[in-house]
Design a protein around this nucleic acid. Structure first.
Lengths: 196, 196
DNA sequence: GTCTATACACCGATAGAC
DNA sequence: GTCTATCGGTGTATAGAC
């Protein structure tokens, strides 16, 4: 029980380091400082070294995504309600738009080759799950996939822009309008907003 | 004349390396291999070392942005025409969505601190220039800024998603609908599309 | 399970010959 | 202007004591 909590805390710290510095930038010195463990201790917990640390961090983020984003999307409630939950959960997931996304960090640069398969799979599950909500709302499946991609693309882009501009306004705007934008044109939303 | 061409070619190769590997991942060994110059030769052209190489690459991208994106946006033609040019130029600028954006690469990770001021300035100029087109088209200024941010955010997000999914469909879709989406609700476009 | 000490490769950077 | 050779520092990873 305590061991689980310890490992979970350790992994959370790993996620934070990798999210801030990326795979190459997250040196063992930084990881050691962030976790309070010496290098050798880290190798005790992750015998395969840094790559295993990063993979474990990626797995944890995947678990978070599953629990706090995807599971709520699969509920029985009305699509518009599920999407409003999504907005709320995304806002917390990305800490009001101030965090970077680990998927993005690992999908760029050298680490792309190491983790692209996992990232691709995770993104596709995310997109498919979101698209199903839109299909439930009456949107034709061929539009649903595109809109789901659009939503995730806007979230990622808003996080990037937030880093570049050092300001979270765009992220908050994207998150806020997401439910109505996604359901625009369906019976769920008679008059949606469109990039206002 | 030939010197200018040489330096320009060298800088272009630098941009490619930094865009692919990011600041930390672009080691001197890789830069040396990509340019065909030895380390010492690189230090002859960039006495302040890697940071100067990266700053020069960023400057070149800024020049490209100014010439092929911003200047066309400031023409005298109709806003819808300028935005259609924008789509075409963006498509080439990002090589059909297969390239990553150097702004994004440098805005994340360790290099953020080094270049954030330049990136922030470049993004703001881009946003302001695009917003002016929308104002010219009759959009209220307070909406114009937001829509311009939305456009750039979608472009960046589409590039990220393209890397993660290894597929450029989203980027092409974003680029194609950009003009109508940006002018939606203005007299220029009586019936725009909205995330179809 | 954590530590100190260390191995060895690679990093960015420089000196000096040509 | 480019090269070879080399520097000090840091990177990941490991050995072995406690």
């Amino acid at each position: 029980m305590q061991k689980l909590m310890f490992k979970d805390k350790l992994l959370t710290q790993l996620v934070n380091v990798f999210r801030q510095y990326g795979y190459e930038g997250a040196t063992l010195a930084r990881i050691s400082a962030a976790t309070g463990l010496g290098r050798a201790s880290l190798y005790h917990h992750f015998p395969k070294g840094k790559e295993e640390m990063a993979a474990s961090a990626l797995n944890l983020v995947n678990t978070w995504l599953e629990e706090s984003i995807l599971t709520p999307l699969r509920q029985e409630s009305e699509p518009i309600e599920r999407l409003r939950d999504l907005s709320k959960n995304l806002y917390e997931f990305y800490n009001c738009g101030q965090q970077t996304c680990l998927f993005t960090m690992f999908a760029l640069g050298e680490s792309k080759d190491l983790f692209q398969a996992q990232i691709q799979k995770a993104l596709n599950v995310w997109i498919d799950t979101l698209a199903q909500v839109l299909i439930d709302a009456g949107l034709p499946p061929e539009y649903a996939r595109h809109r789901a991609e659009d939503a995730i693309l806007q979230i990622q882009g808003a996080l990037i822009l937030g880093q570049g501009l050092d300001e979270t306004g765009a992220f908050e705007r994207v998150i806020k309008r997401l439910p109505e934008q996604l359901l625009n044109g369906t019976e769920q939303v008679s008059r949606g907003i469109c990039l206002q």
